[in-house]
């Protein structure tokens, strides 16, 4: 089981937002995709989860092509996407948002069990289970968004900027939870982050995107240590 992306391009009309990107992710690995604003990080995730299907090239999950497939079908194949900007539905309650994440699953007992697991990782959600999601704080919303994605028992988790707009302390807490979840559920994770340093700290591998192409990739440790990469793309 692995994700193999070959020559992936994403087209916005005549413009290529992602230009011929090739990389591999081993099962159980956490890969941080970092880079400046507009580097194509979100576009890359949206192509992998099926939200953007103006794509060419190939992306194979467990040997099967995932490009050009609708997100509602990919989630059934174990790919869960937490989209940019706290992907929860504010009008629904916390409980409903979680239920929604498992709505296609046939076994209610299993879904119930998964909800228990999610609430153990995010006890704050248990306290607010009956509240509408729009009454949650930013950090709690992000927890709910991740919880919603976990409800489908994914194997590949795509996370778009979980740190966006959150206080450093909350970010640390969320990253810690992501680590725990990944380990306990044997998740493969692709973590898109503006916050390159924090992301590379918890990731195994890193990919640096620059203007829609891969500028550098390798083990997260090496990337952090590489002074050229740091000064050119990570900005510190």
């Amino acid at each position: 089981m692995s994700l193999i992306v070959t020559d992936l391009s994403v087209h916005h009309g005549a413009i290529r937002a992602i230009n011929s990107v090739t990389f591999e992710v081993e099962v159980g690995e956490m890969v941080a995709v970092v880079g400046a604003n507009g580097a194509g990080k979100t576009t890359l995730l949206r192509a992998l989860s099926g939200l953007n299907r103006s794509v060419s090239g190939s992306a194979k999950w467990n040997g099967k092509e995932i490009l050009h497939t609708k997100p509602e079908l990919l989630v059934r194949r174990g790919i869960s996407h937490v989209s940019e900007g706290k992907s929860v539905i504010p009008e629904l309650s916390v409980r409903e948002n979680l239920t929604l994440g498992a709505i296609w699953r046939r076994n209610p007992a299993e879904a119930q069990q998964t909800r228990q697991d999610v609430l153990e990782v995010f006890p704050r959600l248990a306290e607010r289970i009956a509240q509408p999601a729009d009454t949650l704080s930013g950090g709690e919303r992000q927890m709910l968004a991740i919880g919603r994605a976990i409800m489908s028992r994914p194997h590949l988790l795509l996370l778009d900027e979980p740190s966006l707009g959150l206080a450093p302390l909350v970010v640390a807490q969320i990253f810690q939870s992501i680590r725990e979840l990944a380990a306990s559920m044997k998740l493969t994770v692709i973590l898109v982050e503006q916050n390159a340093m924090s992301a590379l700290k918890i990731a195994d591998k890193g990919i640096v995107l620059h203007l829609g192409a891969i500028a550098a990739q390798g083990s997260a440790k090496d990337l952090v240590a590489d002074s050229k990469v740091r000064s050119a793309y990570l900005g510190y």
Partner: peptide, 11 residues
């Protein structure tokens, strides 16, 4: 309310 998130959830 939110077709995109509904899709991601598998609706």
């Amino acid at each position: 309310f939110s077709p995109e998130i509904a899709r991601l959830a598998g609706v």
